[in-house]
Amino acid sequence: MFKNILLPYDFENDFSAIPGYLEKVVGEDSIVVIYHVVTENDLAISVKYYGKHKEDIIREKEKNLTPFLDELDKKGIQYKIKVDFGPIKNTILERITFGSDNKEEFDLVIMSNHRVSLDIKHVLGDVTHKIAKRSPAPVLIVK
């Protein structure tokens, strides 16, 4: 079983299959870090046009995660939520490589590759491909 699992969460992908996979790889003392990265461009738009600042965006993202978190609660999976700001690929890779304040090492990274839209061109998305290629931790890609 894996103890520390990183789950980069993207609201444009379908994460309905993830709780079932998590149930298979977590133990009693496992923790899943649900990690969402907001781009600097999205942050600037939120501030300029909607008057939302970082704290507002974090609360909104946590609220939007509620259906997914309910599924994890039903399966008894322990989790914590982390929202960061920056370039998506590099921020995720930094999180995997350095953890939080160099205290946290991830045993596994789980990524969804099932896009909601059907007009995909490549088998793996750009972010999933880069993370899988450069991650020092094993990456499980779930369709």
Rank of each mutant, 00 (worst) to 15 (best):
E55A: 12
E23L: 11
E105P: 04
H122R: 15
K3T: 01
P136G: 15
T128S: 14
L7Y: 15
K103G: 03
K48W: 04
F15V: 03
Y49Q: 02
N113R: 05
S135G: 08
E104S: 06
E60W: 03
A132H: 11
K48V: 09
N102Q: 12
D14K: 08
V32I: 06
T39S: 14
F2W: 07
I34Q: 00
I77V: 10
G86Y: 10
V109Q: 03
N41L: 07
I110Y: 08
I77R: 00
E62A: 07
S100C: 10
Y50L: 11
P138N: 12
K24T: 15
K82N: 08
T128M: 11
I57G: 08
V142A: 08
L118M: 12
K80G: 01
L6K: 05
N90H: 05
A44M: 12
K54L: 01
A44W: 06
R59N: 14
D119F: 15
D119L: 15
S30K: 04
P87M: 13
E55P: 03
L43K: 10
V26E: 07
V47F: 06
K52C: 00
D84P: 06
S117G: 04
G51M: 10
G99Y: 05
M111Q: 05
E23P: 05
Y21P: 03
D101T: 12
F98R: 14
I31M: 06
H129L: 11
G27K: 13
A44V: 10
A132V: 13
G76H: 08
K48I: 04
D70I: 00
S46A: 14
L140T: 10
Y21A: 09
V109R: 03
T91S: 15
I92P: 02
